[in-house]
Design a protein around this nucleic acid. Structure first.
Lengths: 208, 208
DNA sequence: TGAGTACAGTACCTGCGGTACAGTTTTCCG
DNA sequence: CGGAAAACTGTACCGCAGGTACTGTACTCA
């Protein structure tokens, strides 16, 4: 039912990015060669460099698209949670459960977070790519923080706590959970860690 | 006062690894070239390959040394904490504070976790390197879990919680905290995240 | 129908990982 | 002190990957 609105060039560009993203998340950016990408895409080197001026340009495009898609996913989850409860705390708790379920439902575990993977390969990329990872995490902080502000207004926190730190903690637990999931070959570890964070939020605002 | 027990070969090998580890943590393993390592070490390519049969061999040696050193650091912190309190919970809380302080005291922020950085560059390395990262995280789980078991025996948990998940959460928060610290250029973020985890532990076993 | 778009083809340069192997100095041990 | 092993240096070379440069061409759409 999806209508054809993409030009042929945009289609090819998208196919290159799909192949590249899959490879990058599985073995890292540096060890993903352009040659293997074009081989799988069925194009030539010229074709690749027609769409991306260099490898760094591809990295940037991948990250940009990835963050855009992540926000859409989160928006959808937030919206779904808001429909299930008017209360800010319970809506956030529902969101966390939905988030955990989503992370657990992926067939072979979560493929990884592109942002996190880029952070560890920092100087590969130019300053503007670094800026993108920073911006990405800042936006997460801001959006989670907004939710926590509304919660704290209605449910006074049981302990002294920085809401910025609490907001960041979800990003940290998610990124760290992905690493642990991959390292220990346990796809269920990531959703369980998100549920741990959920338990923390519950304890802070509701108590035991 | 340190006595000279290292042969010249061991010294050079160590110098190569020091230079390499610094570079790897700052820009990733793949984009750290052997040529830049030997340039800084003041040796030739032949010299490098005398000590390491290939780049993967270097990666393995780095990881092995890194995990060994980490355990020594943690042992020292645990010992210090145990001397300050006999109570398992308070000792663990002290340990977490010491850990957070240590992570914050590094001049330019924590350089990063080698294990985490390797996880995102998976297929670069052979199966035995993968095994090392897995083993590393498993040992952390076991050691933290032991502490939590002793705590739970004296302080019944206020909520239903998996102690394995709680043990893993410290690794996750630390790994994720490093990523966020680097991404947001805020060295104080990592220790603050560890303190968040500490607050969680406190809430679970002591309440508000 | 002609001007872009979206590539293919070819050729070539560079840097890096890695090999091979011969030669040289340094260290250590009996 | 001498000799063997350890710890390298020097040189030459290979293959692969990223990247450049430029020409040619099929398709597409106004």
């Amino acid at each position: 039912m999806t209508v054809q609105v993409l030009s042929k060039g945009e289609q090819t560009r998208g196919r290159i990015m799909d192949i590249a993203q899959d490879a990058v998340l599985h073995k890292g950016f540096a060890s993903t060669s352009i040659e293997e990408i074009i081989a799988e895409a069925g194009i030539t080197k010229s074709g690749f460099f027609y769409h991306f001026k260099d490898k760094n340009d591809l990295a940037k495009a991948l990250l940009q698209r990835y963050t855009d898609e992540e926000w859409m996913v989160f928006d959808a989850l937030f919206k779904q949670a808001d429909e299930l409860s008017d209360d800010p705390l319970h809506s956030f708790l529902i969101f966390l459960k939905l988030f955990a379920d989503l992370m657990g439902d992926l067939p072979n575990g979560h493929p990884g977070c592109l942002i996190a993977s880029y952070v560890y390969q920092d100087f590969l990329f130019s300053q503007d790519v670094r800026a993108l990872t920073t911006e990405g995490h800042q936006i997460w902080r801001k959006r989670f923080r907004e939710r926590l502000d509304k919660i704290a207004a209605r449910y006074p926190a049981r302990i002294e706590v920085s809401l910025d730190d609490m907001a960041d903690m979800l990003s940290a637990v998610a990124d760290g959970g992905i690493i642990l999931s991959k390292s220990l070959h346990d796809p269920s570890l990531l959703p369980r860690q998100i549920m741990q964070y959920r338990a923390y939020v519950k304890l802070v605002f509701l108590g035991a």
